[in-house]
């Protein structure tokens, strides 16, 4: 197999509140032999909030982010659903609207850059499943996660809107996604089927509407627990920040004690590949991962 190489759009949380996502991503990439070239010039994607304030500015900044992958001749890999959404939306809008692309390029020209549209943008989950191959991963499992019931929590911005993601997420159905489920099974664990696996965690209103955010995450977590999940796994650090850090506040809001470890996607893969838990940053998780 040709060695996979991507431009790695790290995003903001792996460098601050989710260092374990950074560590585990790099660890499994190394073990699997995937080369991740960090886009050191990249800025924040705007997280759908800068977009509310100044849409055009967010387009210019994200077009600049993509330019640096194009300059390296690489496709982009993201490790956050919201980064994925905002980069992919930028690409979609610029590729389908020449007038808009010209307006953005007029600004980029001032810093000697040009958006061309030559780099694809893909979440690490789909790079693993579709580019690397689920069978190839399965063949490298050293420590099957048997007897473990894992509830996949997909997160919104990797599956909706379908129109933006279909090309890069293997045409995942937003009402019945299955990529994470398939990966869980490939790693030797049981995938938990539950209604809320494709629902929202409420992260984006955590500050202005904490009650809404806590009710929404609580519903999802209670549903996973009701279906006997030992742990939940998510490809999105923003979902992780809610589900892992906010368990006390969520419990208070829903009136039930919720306590369940939450894994990042690469932490789960890393455990099955037999990577040392230190390198997967398990010590950073707030809800302790005690089944290891």
């Amino acid at each position: 197999m040709k060695k996979l190489e991507y431009a790695f759009f790290v995003g903001c949380t792996p460098k601050q509140s989710t260092p374990e996502l950074m560590d585990s991503t790099l660890a499994i990439a190394q073990t699997l032999g995937i080369s991740l070239v960090e886009l050191e010039e990249a800025t924040c994607c705007g997280a759908s909030h800068l977009q509310d304030f100044d849409d055009f500015l967010s387009l210019v900044l994200n077009a600049r982010n993509i330019c640096y992958a194009e300059k390296r001749g690489l496709d982009i890999v993201t490790v956050c659903n919201t980064c994925q959404l905002n980069l992919a939306t930028t690409k979609h809008r610029l590729d389908s609207d020449k007038e808009l692309r010209d307006r953005v390029n007029e600004k980029l020209k001032e810093v000697n850059l040009e958006y061309k549209g030559s780099s694809k943008i893909k979440h690490f989950l789909y790079a693993l499943i579709d580019d690397y191959g689920i069978d190839e991963i399965a063949s490298r499992v050293k420590n099957p996660l048997k007897n473990l019931y894992i509830a996949p929590f997909y997160g919104c911005h990797n599956i909706r809107p379908k129109e933006i993601h279909a090309e890069s997420n293997g045409n995942e159905d937003p009402y019945r996604p299955n990529s994470l489920d398939r990966l869980i099974v490939a790693l030797g664990a049981h995938n938990v089927e539950y209604e809320f696996k494709s629902k929202c965690c409420g992260f984006h209103v955590e500050l202005q509407a904490p009650k809404t955010a806590n009710v929404i995450s609580g519903n999802a977590m209670l549903d996973a627990i009701k279906h006997n999940a030992d742990t939940m796994v998510t490809p999105c650090p923003l979902c992780h920040l809610r589900l892992d850090i906010q368990q006390k506040n969520i419990s208070k809001e829903v009136g039930q004690n919720i306590s369940i470890p939450i894994l990042h996607l690469p932490q789960m893969v890393g455990l099955a590949l037999g990577i040392d838990e230190e390198r997967l940053g398990l010590k950073n998780n707030i809800a302790k991962v005690e089944f290891v």
Binding site: H157, R160, C200, H204
Partner: peptide
Amino acid sequence: VWDCVKCYECAE
């Protein structure tokens, strides 16, 4: 508008 959770369920 500030209470929209940005889940894109409406778009689907």
